[in-house]
């Protein structure tokens, strides 16, 4: 399994760069991962989504779909795509240090 160093710590990731062990994540890593994805600064709504993603993963064992995010995170679908232009569920999962959600919707 590949590993990489993010914000000074070595973490386990898969081939696409998603965390395989979310407990290795911290907020400094999120800042660095966001920059890699083209988000220079994580704003409050970004953090709302990131923390929501992690909570959903803890509760359900999988990250939420964009639709679920839009309905329950308090951030609308429209805003989600503005915050994470390269696909909210996927991009936010990567930054939040959880595996990539596999839903079709």
């Amino acid at each position: 399994m590949p590993t990489r160093t993010i914000a000074g710590s070595e973490v386990d990731v898969n081939d696409e760069g998603f965390f395989t062990d979310p407990s290795q994540w911290n907020e400094d890593m999120a800042v660095e991962l966001a920059k890699e994805s083209g988000i220079d600064e994580l704003t409050d709504p970004h953090w709302t989504v990131i923390h929501f993603m992690r909570k959903e993963y803890d509760d359900k064992g999988t990250g939420p779909t964009v639709r679920a995010l839009g309905k329950t995170s308090g951030v609308t679908v429209k805003e989600l795509y503005q915050l994470f232009p390269k696909g909210p569920a996927k991009m936010a999962a990567k930054i939040a240090g959880i595996p990539k959600p596999r839903g079709c919707i």
């Binding site: 779909t65 964009v66 795509y81 232009p85 390269k86 696909g87 909210p88 569920a89 996927k90 991009m91 079709c104 919707i105």
Partner: peptide
């Protein structure tokens, strides 16, 4: 609809 939505979800 699923193809279009799925594309956007992938950043396409």
């Amino acid at each position: 609809l699923i193809m279009a939505n799925g594309a956007r979800a992938e950043g396409i």
